[in-house]
Design a protein around this nucleic acid. Structure first.
Lengths: 346, 346
DNA sequence: CACAAAAATGTGCTCGAACACACTAATTTT
DNA sequence: AAAATTAGTGTGTTCGAGCACATTTTTGTG
C-alpha cells in the first residue's frame, strides 16, 4: 500500500528540507541553483499532488457567498434556484461556508441596483449573480471586482473581463433545438415564434433563441414552414393572440421563447384546436400541467436549479480546493415531455 | 466573522478537556454523568459540525476502487464509461484514491466470473460493478461482501440486500418516454418494438422497456397505433428485418430497445422510406450519424458515462467525507435529437 | 582577512480531529 | 489503612501544507 508522496518525501529524496521544497513549489525564490535542480529532478520523476485536505486545514476562514437573483415570487422561473441553493448548502455544510440569497424585483432596475449595493456593503468573498439588467450588471460587477469580491454569473451571459465564470445555456442552440422539435412534430403550414415581452428585460435572450430557431430552418433549406414572429405584451396578450389565431388559420406550431407557454396553452386549449404543436421553456407547474394534458408538446429545460448549484459548487471548488474556475459552463439543453419531466424537477 | 466551532471550543464552553468531548462525540464511554450533561448542554445549544478536512487528514490511507464493466471494444455502448472513469480520476486526483478498471467479455459469463475472481483477490476497498449476468453477479456480490468490500452497481439493477447503491435508469419509464415520442411524431399505423437479442444478456432490460412502451399506450387508450414486437438475432437480422418491412407496408414507427438503432437505420435508409419514425438508445457515433441524417428521430441517452462517474463519486463521498450512500440514484432519461446531442457526449 | 549584508536553508509551529497514553481521583480489595 | 483496581480526565502527538522565523552559508566590500 504505497501512500502518496508528501513534501517531506520530496525533501528527503532531494536531500533538502521541506522548507526549500515549499519555496520551489510556490516559486518564492531564495533557492540555490543546486537545490532547485535536485528538487526539479525529483519532481520530474514522481507525480506530486499536494494534499488539498491538508492545505485547507490551516485556512479556517468562513467563506461567505451571496447569491443575487430575482424574487421567485415575482417570476416562478426562479423558484428552482431556491432548491439549488438549499442543495448546495446541505452538500457543503461540512466546509466553512456561509451562503445567503438576496432577491431583487425582476421588473425593477432600481431594486437590482439597491440589492447589489447592499450585498457590496456586506463584503462577501464571492457573489453569484443573475445579471438581468445588462448595463447595471456590468457596473455592479465592476464595483465588486474593485473590492476584490469574486463574481460569477448564471442564467444570462455577460461579456466582461472580470467575470470568471458563467453557468447557463447556449440560447442560439436552444432555439435550434426547438426548431428541430417543431420540424419533427408539426404539420406543414405556418409557425409562430412568440415573445412574451415584459419591459424588454429578456430581449437579448429571446432574440438569440429566435435567431437559432430561424437559423435551423434557413440552414436546412426547402422548409415546409412559413415562420412569423409575434410579440405579446402582458396587458392585452389574450385578445391580441386570439386575433392572431383567427387571422392565421393555417398555424401549425408555436415556439414560445419564455417560460410563459402556459398562457398560450390556455388559449389554444379553449379553441379546441389539436393540430397546433407547442414548444416552450421551463418546468413550471402550469407548464407541466399542459404538458401532461398534451397541449404543450415539449418543454426545454433551462435548468435554473442546476445553474445555481453548479455556480456555487464552482465557487466552493475554488475556495476550498483551490481549483481554477472555468470561464464558462454550458449546461445541456434538456428536451422534456410528460414522461421524463419528473427527473428534471425534483 | 464568527468561525466554526471546534471540539476545543466545546470543551472550553463545557469546562472540560477536548479529550472528554471527543469521548462523548464518539460514545467511547468513560465519562462522568456530570461531564456528559454539561457537554450535551453545550451541544444542544450550538450546531456542531466536525471539520471533515481535519478528520480526513489523519486518515492517510489510499482507497482503492475497482470498476468492473464489459469491454468497450466488444460493445461500444460502454465506451463513454472510460471517459467517466477518467473524469472521476481527474476530479478526485487530490484525494488518496486509486481507481482501476477491469473488463469482461459481455458475451461470456465465464469471463465475468473470472474478472470478479481476480478483482476479489486484489482486495480493493470498493467495487463498482456492471452486473450484466444476474445469477453470477449475485454470487460475486456475496463474495465481495464477505471480504468487507463495498459493492455498488450501475446500469443494471440487481435486487440484493448487500448492494448499497445503484446508479442507473428506470427502464420501464424509459419505455414510456419512447412511447410518448412515437406518439408525438409517428403517423397513424403500425409500430414495431425491435429487440436485438444477443444471447439474451439484455433480456430483462429489453422486456422492461417494452412493458413501459406498451403501458403508455394501453393507459392512454384509443390509440392510433397497432404495436407488434420483433426479435432479431445478430446473424440474420438484415434479411429478417427486410422481410418484416415487406410484410408490413403500413409500418410508421420503430422503437429499438438496444443501442443498435443504426443497424435498422441503415436498412431503412436503403429503402428510401421517409415516413417511418425511429427511436433508439445511446449516443454511439453511428447512431448520431443517422440522427443528423434524419433517419433516426430521437435517441434516449442512458448516460453510461454519468452512471460510472456518479457511482464513483458516491464512493468517494463515502470514503473521504464519510457520507452515507443512498440506496439508488435514478438518472434522468434524456431525450436527444440532432441539436442537443453534443451536450450529452463530450 | 574581517565583518556585514544578503542569500539560502532548516526548524518549528499552526490548523482540527482522533486517539494513545499519562495522570488523578474514586472505589474496591486485601 | 495500604494497595490495587478502575473510572474519569487531560495532555500530547499525528496527519501535510504553509509560512514565519531562526539559523547557516555564501558573497561582497573595506
Amino acid at each position: 500500500m504505497d501512500k502518496k508522496l508528501t513534501i517531506k518525501d520530496i525533501a528527503q529524496l532531494a536531500g533538502v528540507s521541506k522548507g526549500t521544497v515549499d519555496r520551489v513549489l510556490h516559486k518564492r525564490g531564495k533557492v540555490s541553483q543546486k537545490a532547485l535542480d535536485s528538487i526539479n529532478a525529483v519532481l520530474e520523476q514522481i507525480d506530486y499532488e499536494p494534499n488539498l485536505i491538508a492545505r485547507n486545514l490551516k485556512n479556517n476562514k468562513i467563506y461567505s457567498i451571496c447569491v443575487v437573483l430575482p424574487n421567485p415570487e415575482s417570476d416562478s422561473y426562479w423558484q428552482p434556484c431556491i432548491k439549488g441553493i438549499e442543495q448546495a448548502k446541505k452538500e457543503f455544510k461540512a466546509f466553512n461556508l456561509s451562503i445567503s440569497s438576496y432577491y431583487f424585483d425582476p421588473e425593477d432596475t432600481e431594486s437590482f441596483i439597491a440589492v447589489n449595493k447592499n450585498v457590496l456593503s456586506l463584503a462577501p468573498d464571492a457573489v453569484l449573480l443573475a445579471p438581468l439588467f445588462y448595463k447595471e450588471a456590468l457596473e455592479a460587477v465592476e464595483k465588486y471586482t474593485e473590492q476584490d469580491i469574486l463574481v460569477n454569473t448564471f442564467n444570462n451571459q455577460l461579456e466582461s473581463e472580470e467575470i470568471r465564470n458563467f453557468v447557463g445555456q447556449d440560447l442560439h442552440q436552444s432555439g435550434r433545438v426547438a426548431a428541430k422539435l417543431i420540424d419533427s412534430i408539426a404539420q406543414k403550414g405556418q409557425i409562430a415564434i412568440v415573445h412574451f415581452d415584459e419591459k424588454f428585460k429578456n430581449a437579448v435572450h429571446m432574440q438569440e433563441k429566435e435567431k437559432g430557431f430561424r437559423n435551423y430552418f434557413s440552414q436546412k433549406g426547402n422548409s415546409d414552414y412559413e415562420i412569423t414572429t409575434l410579440k405579446l405584451k402582458r396587458k392585452n396578450y389574450e385578445t391580441k393572440f386570439e386575433d392572431f389565431l383567427k387571422e392565421n388559420g393555417n398555424l401549425k406550431g408555436i415556439f414560445i421563447t419564455t417560460s410563459k407557454a402556459y398562457q398560450i396553452a390556455e388559449i389554444i386549449e379553449k379553441t379546441k384546436k389539436d393540430d397546433i404543436s407547442l414548444i416552450g421553456y421551463d418546468l413550471l407547474d402550469k407548464n407541466i400541467a399542459f404538458l401532461n394534458l398534451g397541449t404543450i408538446d415539449f418543454l426545454i429545460n433551462q435548468n435554473p436549479k442546476q445553474q445555481v448549484y453548479l455556480g456555487l459548487s464552482f465557487l466552493v471548488d475554488h475556495f476550498i480546493f483551490g481549483k481554477e474556475i472555468n470561464h464558462s459552463a454550458l449546461l445541456p439543453i434538456d428536451i422534456v415531455n410528460s414522461e421524463n419531466a419528473s427527473y428534471y424537477m425534483e
